[in-house]
């Protein structure tokens, strides 16, 4: 059984490395710049006159703000996906290739403790970045337009989960593959999963069972698209949801418009996906020749 103390040591070391390599600083500066720019954009929405020369009504501002926030969140999620993968992919392979791992594993620690510590440290970075940037962005949107999405905590949880899925997959691949390869594979899967979700939606719209099945399979293999749709749903005001439901399955292909919250079996599957993937990572690294 892994011991907690070395797991925490390795987690701290992972976060320390991100900080020392100026990753945290770079991300912080860029995030503040982007949030500032979007804040300007949102305040323009709130203070611009409509086509009739009259200021936009509160309902219109809320509607436009909610849709714009979904797009901004899409940008954040994509950046988070890239960062998660690029940081996690060389995490184990880099230490093995540079032989740093030899001196570490000759200490009274298990390989599983190194893997769990790395995962925990990377996961903490993903959660911290998501929570920090989301709170900042939502506060700026609130100040600029007075709009707050209906389920902000769920929004953060689902966006963070996208980053965690990709971190976990990249770390698993990092036990066997070089950093570059371990980064490219999850990114391709992420984009293919995105297209798979759209194809599944098209299948729903036109009643094609093959496409529906393809969408489901891609969502099970990599839950990022399902999590993205759950995040979108958390950002949609009740009026938008009602409109989408009234429109029927025609909107199902649109990855920026979701009529239903995530199904419980999907969330359970996602939890199981994490367990299986971490288990696979532990197994794979235990058998790796170093």
């Amino acid at each position: 059984m892994p011991d907690l103390a070395p797991v925490l040591t390795f987690a701290r070391l992972t976060m320390w490395e991100a900080s020392r390599r100026k990753l945290l600083l770079a991300v912080l500066v860029l995030t503040v710049l982007v949030v500032g720019a979007t804040g300007w954009g949102f305040s323009e929405i709130a203070h611009t006159n409509g086509p009739g020369g009259q200021p936009l009504g509160e309902v219109q501002v809320r509607l436009i703000a909610s849709q714009t926030l979904i797009l901004v969140t899409f940008l954040f999620a994509a950046v988070l996906a890239l960062m998660s993968v690029l940081v996690a992919a060389p995490s184990i392979s880099g230490d093995v290739e540079s032989n740093i791992v030899l001196a570490l594993l000759a200490r009274p620690v298990r390989r599983s403790e190194l893997v769990l510590g790395k995962w925990l440290g990377l996961a903490a970075l993903v959660v911290m970045y998501t929570a920090g940037s989301a709170i900042l962005e939502l506060a700026v949107v609130d100040i600029a337009t007075g709009y707050v999405p209906p389920r902000p905590v769920e929004l953060m949880v689902y966006v963070a989960a996208i980053g965690l899925v990709l971190t976990t997959l990249a770390l698993m691949l990092s036990t066997r593959l070089a950093g570059m390869t371990a980064a490219i594979i999850p990114l391709i899967c992420y984009f293919v999963g995105w297209v798979g979700g759209i194809l599944g939606g098209i299948g729903q719209a036109i009643g094609n069972n093959g496409l529906i099945a393809a969408g489901v399979v891609s969502r099970l293999l990599l839950p990022t698209d399902g999590l993205w749709r759950a995040a979108v749903y958390a950002m949609e005001p009740a009026s938008v949801v009602a409109g989408l439901r009234a429109a029927g399955p025609l909107n199902a292909a649109n990855p920026f418009a979701v009529s239903d919250g995530p199904a419980v079996p999907f969330l359970l599957w996602t939890a199981l996906w994490f367990l299986v993937m971490v288990g696979l990572t532990l197994w794979s690294f235990r058998r790796r020749e170093i």
Partner: peptide, 27 residues
């Protein structure tokens, strides 16, 4: 104790920090 043939230690740590890390791992 062990000094590997291809020795490499975290380049982003100071020498003292590397030793602290190993003190911690060695309990």
């Amino acid at each position: 104790g062990y000094q590997p043939e291809l020795f490499r230690y975290q380049p982003w740590l100071t020498g003292r920090e590397v030793l602290r890390l190993h003190c911690e791992l060695a309990r």
